[in-house]
Design a binder for these strands. Sequence first.
DNA 1: GGGGCAAATTAAGGCAAACTTAAGAGTCCG
DNA 2: CGGACTCTTAAGTTTGCCTTAATTTGCCCC
Lengths: 220, 220
Amino acid sequence: MRILLIEDDESLADGIATALRHEAYAVDRAGTGREGIALAQAAQPDLVILDLGLPDLDGIDVLKSLRQKGIHCTVMILTARDALRAKIQGLDAGADDYLTKPFAVDELLARLRALERRSGVSRSPDILIGDVVINTASHEVLLNGEAVKLSRREFSLLRALAERPGHILSREQLEDKLYSWGEEVASNTVDVHIHNLRKKIYPEFIQTIRGVGYKLGPGR
Amino acid sequence: MRILLIEDDESLADGIATALRHEAYAVDRAGTGREGIALAQAAQPDLVILDLGLPDLDGIDVLKSLRQKGIHCTVMILTARDALRAKIQGLDAGADDYLTKPFAVDELLARLRALERRSGVSRSPDILIGDVVINTASHEVLLNGEAVKLSRREFSLLRALAERPGHILSREQLEDKLYSWGEEVASNTVDVHIHNLRKKIYPEFIQTIRGVGYKLGPGR
DNA sequence: GGGGCAAATTAAGGCAAACTTAAGAGTCCG
DNA sequence: CGGACTCTTAAGTTTGCCTTAATTTGCCCC
């Protein structure tokens, strides 16, 4: 799950980004509207968090511009308290949710999970695949009812695969889901995490399609 | 994935149909309940989107009628906001999901993806040739319901042939499909893969046109 | 019926993809 | 500040696929 954060207040952006990364999201950041639009096209995020009070462009225009460029991912708007008109405009322009400043980061995270669920990126809070239950909210994974302890990256990887059971994801696609810009990896990291996941769950749970990628499940 | 849209509001139906087609669904349309029931029988859709406010019949009755006629595909209901009673009736009558108007098209698409996943019908159209099913998303191939394990090249070859059943593809054309520029082969590789495919499926599945190439036929 | 060419068959070597392991750097937390 | 844990690298190993090429079979036309 890859998130683009468009926010000019640097300390706030720092805080949000840290919290998000902690929740195993990959985060890209933009400080201006133009930068945001550019990054949205380049990085193909699953979700955009958009502050309406940007220095260069009006937030609503940014949103419209995104939609116009064919970027239809979920968008959450951040706005100052009582800027009701802006909210309404935002929703009309195709935003999916809004949050008024100031807000608690936990609130943001909760909303994100709700959006995630609603947008069908991962529908039910618990994804069920074979004898494995994945709870995206708590980051808990159960194998036959027994908790499996996964690290952050392992969980991200598993979630990425679990969003579309049976579908094959290439290493490249998986890396895109796990890493933000500027922290690309240049090794077989994905392989290693896959290996560790298999050890913690069971080997056949993740299938290798040689020369193509990995997929989850008995496949269909 | 084939969708039947039963909706009398023409402009709304236009919008939905366009969005769906854009997502590579095949869409049939009906403006009335009767038309809808007729089309559902004729077109055999995988999913029905049913507006409850139709001019001729009550939406719930349409749904019941469909079920009665043995059409058990997934059904998503569209209903005006707050028509709670209708929703409940709808779910009782065997609908799988509902959406209240007005709604964002993205929301509809997200719900569809969720339903798709739940029902196991895949949008990436499974190619069906004779008794062989080819799923391009998962690289799975089923022969009479039994999985056939294919290697990457074998799968590519099969897919190339299956994209246009009955059409003859020359060795050269097939090589072009399998290899990127600069990695041309200089031997009978294609022949060998064809042979292995025949062994894994059954010989007559792939037909040889002497001096020309290969094609996929309904075979038996 | 026979020559010649196209396609089928088979087996083996080479090679790249994927797996495995371990170690060092980095991070978090008490 | 120290210890635990996680992540990334990289090197070594294994596995399985692909290609090659030699041989056999089958077809068509002379």
